[in-house]
Design a protein around this nucleic acid. Structure first.
Lengths: 208, 208
DNA sequence: TAATATATTTACCTAGCGGTATAGATATAC
DNA sequence: GTATATCTATACCGCTAGGTAAATATATTA
């Protein structure tokens, strides 16, 4: 587990980070249940005991791949939400999502949705984890919007929770669309239409 | 396979329609891969050979359950799209989706998305089938919108394909939200925000 | 070089998977 | 009543799943 060099025994013959990236690809494409250990070891280029020694078991491997997903392919979120203007922030978020979904080297779809949406009882912990992960993403969007209200980028009466939920739902829907074969321009137009719900100064966003 | 009565041998001891409904529930909740034959037979109240005799195999059972889903829980779509006014039609569609997603007797989420979004190679045929099914649903929405243009319910320059894709994506996103624990009011507000993208006479819907 | 610690390889384990053969039960047709 | 057709129950099939024991290989430390 220690990645520091110069451990005392025989050094491992594979790069654990590369192997984890390969595992991520498999989980991303096939989901947690659909990815078998044989799929994983083959893609990672190692055999079973090496996988267990380095990553624990299938569930821990998935969790580590998930962390890597957030720090890697999904890291655009940070940059987008750091944008000074709220609307621009969300537009960059959409752009990042589309780049992620349409990158030819990636499986189509978002790991947080594809990983385990509906599954058997054994995968239930993973399913719950992904639910939390998605909720956390939505919360970050909401917080960004709240900052937008504070900055007067958004009307004071904006319901940031509602708007964040809507934007998140659209992103998740784009995800399903990507997994169904939609292309870049089609996703772009979905995002543009979603932005029509952006609140105007007249105050039309959060009236239940 | 023949459901007509008075066949010559011993009559089957279970109601095939009821059993199929039970199977649908299991597939809906756990997905195609997550639902094991033991899960299915237990829920259906029959044993394995009866299942195979009546429904073929797991894949055929899923396909039959899917047909039943469309004719049953998802049949609200027909009614909604038959509404005379285009906008009202879509609003009824959203209402139907929410009713489906929030019915306490149903698993949360839509069978067409939960069934098999990402899966192993063995389930690939089912995944493709669900993609087709979702595309068919989107096409029906598009056709309804096109009729709306013909009826002058919608501006003449409306891009119906784009709008249908957007609305479908929102519905699919609501689906993921439902599977993550959203409640009825929350979904309602998502739908309401989506309707803000509805084209106005000024012609703001389809400008790429 | 000897001792030790870790990694890899091979071969295997148990459990559950989807699917089925076979024998027994229960209806109709004659 | 007997033959026949169909359904049900038990027990099983081969296969793959996730996971591991034991032996071998290769590095560091002394």
């Amino acid at each position: 587990m220690q990645k520091e060099s110069s451990a005392r025994g025989r050094p491992r013959a594979f790069d654990a980070d590369v192997a984890l990236d390969r595992a991520l690809q498999v989980f991303w494409r096939k989901g947690y249940e659909g990815a078998s250990l044989s799929d994983l070891t083959e893609a990672m280029g190692i055999n079973r005991p090496s996988l267990y020694a380095a990553f624990g078991n299938k569930e821990e491997l998935f969790r580590k791949a998930l962390d890597r997903y957030k720090d890697g392919p999904a890291s655009y979120v940070c940059g987008a939400l750091a944008e000074p203007n709220a609307r621009l922030s969300i537009e960059k978020l959409f752009a990042g999502v589309i780049n992620l979904l349409m990158a030819p080297e990636n499986p189509s779809g978002c790991m947080l949705v594809q990983g385990a949406l509906a599954c058997g009882d054994e995968s239930e912990p993973i399913r719950r984890r992904l639910i939390e992960e998605r909720a956390a993403g939505e919360a970050r969007v909401r917080e960004r919007l709240e900052r937008g209200v504070a900055d007067a980028d958004l009307p004071a009466d904006t319901d940031c929770a509602d708007l964040a939920r809507f934007l998140t739902a659209v992103i998740q829907g784009m995800d399903v669309q990507a997994a169904s074969g939609a292309n870049r321009e089609e996703l772009w137009r979905v995002a543009q239409m979603a932005m029509r719900a952006w609140p105007t100064e007249a105050g039309a966003a959060g009236e239940a």
